[in-house]
Structure formats: structure tokens, C-alpha cells
């Protein structure tokens, strides 16, 4: 498996995501600067959390227009696994790889805590093998995590089984408690506000992040 993690100016979970890929999948991870216009073919591309471009304009809006993103979109449409936690999710929606948008949390404040999530769409390389309805406990840490999508978009997501995760106790006002959304030709793109890379060992307070990463070895 060939894996990389992209770094944008202001990314701050790029190392964490690379470490998680290495530890859980046992792969070497290339670190890719956002100005790259050509990429080798990757099986797994990480779009990390953080504050790319300081959240100026809208979270993820400027990063989505970085040179590297054209290549990410092309490979995603070609079936490569693209995982975007937190700011990665925001970038993926801004880049048009996933529907909807992320807006300011309902409570207006930044929220960092562990939340319980319910697994829903199991037809994806990330959630295959997970039982529908299973609870995962993962950390969130965001200011703009309120997922919004219009009614028709919501119907399509639900109809196509592309809602990967919902919050048990909605922390940010997301439409229909949506925490993670699938996209791409084979549900190979996953954007989610929680941070699976922060929950891969007991010392960090949990290992449920592995549940979303480990299945990728078989993908």
C-alpha cells in the first residue's frame, strides 16, 4: 500500500495522521507539500486536520484550491482512498469531493471532547466489516463542524448509504446528526469531523480510531 499525507500551510494534524497510518497500517507514509502539481499514484491519501490558511475566507476554502488538490480529486475519482478528518473534511467539501458544507458550531465555541458516534453506512472501505449501529468513541476538536446539506442532498446521502457516522449527542448542530460522509466512485472518500488518528492506543484514551483505519489494509 502506498500512502501519503498532504501538508497545507496551517495543517497541524499532518504528523498525527501520518503516524496513525504508519502505526495502524504498517505503511511508510510520504509527506506531500501542497504546491506539488503531480503526484505518484497513491492507494491512500490523507488530508489532515488543522487550520489551513488560518481558516481565512472559510475553513478549507483556500486549501481546496491548492495545486495538489487537482491531483487529489483526480485520484479520488479514480478510486484512491482519500481520508479527511476535521479540516480535511472541510477541504474535501470545498473541493467538491463531498457534498454539503461545514459551518460554525451551534454553540459558537470551539469544542474539544470525546463523542459517541453510531456507524451507519457500512458499504465503504473504511466501515466494511463494522456492524451497523456500533458505537465508536472518538475525539472532536473543532470550531466549524456543523454539517449542512440541503434536503435533496440529504435524501441522496441517505438513499445511497453515504452517511458513515452520526453523533449520538450532536455537539455542533450538524444536520441530521451527521459526523462523517462518504463519496467517490466506490465510497473511497471519507470526510469526518472526529479525529480517528487521535484514538489509536489506550494511552491516548481509546483505540476506536483503529476501527476505521484497519479495514483499509483489505481495501
Amino acid at each position: 500500500m502506498r500512502a501519503c499525507v498532504v501538508t497545507f500551510p496551517g495543517s497541524n494534524c499532518d504528523r498525527d495522521l501520518a503516524v496513525a497510518f504508519e502505526r495502524v497500517l504498517g505503511v511508510r507514509v510520504d509527506r506531500v507539500w501542497h504546491k506539488r502539481t503531480r503526484l505518484d499514484r497513491y492507494d491512500l491519501i490523507g488530508i489532515p486536520g488543522g487550520f489551513s490558511y488560518g481558516d481565512h475566507l472559510r475553513p478549507g476554502a483556500i486549501a481546496a484550491r491548492s495545486p495538489v488538490m487537482q491531483e487529489v480529486v483526480r485520484q479520488a475519482n479514480d478510486g484512491a482512498l482519500v481520508l479527511g478528518p476535521c479540516n480535511g473534511f472541510q477541504i474535501l467539501t470545498e473541493a467538491g469531493l463531498l457534498p454539503g458544507a461545514l459551518i460554525r458550531n451551534r454553540g459558537l465555541a470551539f469544542v474539544c471532547r470525546r463523542v459517541d458516534l453510531v456507524v451507519e453506512g457500512t458499504d465503504s472501505p473504511y466501515t466494511r466489516g463494522l456492524e451497523r449501529g456500533r458505537t465508536l468513541r472518538l475525539p472532536i476538536a473543532h470550531h466549524d463542524g456543523g454539517y449542512v446539506v440541503d434536503d435533496e442532498g440529504l435524501r441522496r446521502l441517505e438513499g445511497e448509504g453515504r452517511i458513515a457516522l452520526r453523533y449520538k449527542d450532536n455537539p455542533n448542530g450538524s444536520t441530521a446528526d451527521i459526523a462523517g460522509v462518504l463519496g467517490g466512485p466506490r465510497n473511497n472518500v471519507l470526510g469526518l469531523m472526529p479525529h480517528p488518528e487521535r484514538a489509536i492506543e489506550p494511552l491516548l484514551g481509546g483505540v476506536d480510531g483503529r476501527a476505521l483505519l484497519a479495514p483499509l489494509l483489505a481495501a
Binding site: N12, C112, R198, G205
Partner: peptide, 25 residues
């Protein structure tokens, strides 16, 4: 207060807020 702080970024916070001392690996 501390839920408004990202206390887990860098994925090495092993002693979180609320104890006697915080611990980072």
C-alpha cells in the same frame, strides 16, 4: 474552559486536563 482548548492535538496528551498535572508524551 478546557473543552474550548484543543488539548489533544499532536496526539501525545496522555494526562488530560482535570488531574493534578497534565502529562504529554
Amino acid at each position: 474552559i478546557w473543552e474550548q482548548y484543543d488539548h489533544m492535538v499532536m496526539a501525545d496528551t496522555v494526562g488530560r486536563p482535570g488531574g493534578d498535572a497534565a502529562v504529554v508524551r
